[in-house]
Measured scan of single mutants.
Amino acid sequence: SRSVIRSIIKSSKLNIDHKDYLLDLLNDVKGSKDLKEFHKMLTAILA
């Protein structure tokens, strides 16, 4: 869910600018399909 993804971003080791950017992107995501794609992208970034 959106709140879980937000929590993953906030607890990541990324610097604050990257976190803010990803949180802004997350706010722009519409629909469950796009949310799944965003989660895939985030997982790849944090891997």
Rank of each mutant, 00 (worst) to 15 (best):
K33E: 12
R2P: 04
F38S: 00
K10G: 05
V29N: 02
H18A: 10
G31A: 05
K36Y: 13
N27R: 10
L42T: 02
K30L: 06
H39G: 08
F38G: 00
Y21H: 07
A44N: 10
L26R: 01
K13R: 12
L22R: 00
Y21F: 09
S11W: 09
K19W: 03
V29K: 04
K36S: 08
K13Y: 06
D34F: 09
L22N: 00
L22A: 03
K33S: 07
T43F: 14
D28K: 15
N27Q: 10
K30W: 07
L25I: 06
L22C: 02
R2M: 11
L26P: 00
H18W: 12
L25T: 04
A44M: 14
M41K: 06
L22K: 00
D24I: 13
A47M: 11
K30Q: 08
I8M: 15
R6Q: 11
S7Y: 13
L46R: 02
E37C: 06
N15S: 14
I5K: 01
A47H: 09
I9K: 00
I16C: 06
L35E: 03
Y21D: 03
K40A: 09
L26G: 00
I16S: 14
L14V: 03
E37H: 09
D20M: 15
L46S: 01
L25K: 10
D17F: 09
M41P: 00
I8F: 07
S7F: 11
D17I: 11
L14R: 01
D24F: 14
S3W: 10
S7N: 12
V4R: 14
E37R: 15
I8D: 02
K36F: 14
K40W: 07
V29G: 02
V4E: 11
L14F: 03
R6T: 08
I9S: 00
L42E: 00
L35R: 03
Y21M: 08
K33C: 04
I16M: 13
D34R: 10
D17Y: 09
L46Y: 02
D34I: 05
N27K: 14
H39K: 12
S1V: 11
L23T: 03
S3A: 12
H39L: 14
S32M: 12
H18I: 14
L46V: 05
K10M: 15
L22D: 00
D34S: 12
L23Y: 07
L14P: 00
K19I: 08
K40G: 05
L25A: 06
K30R: 11
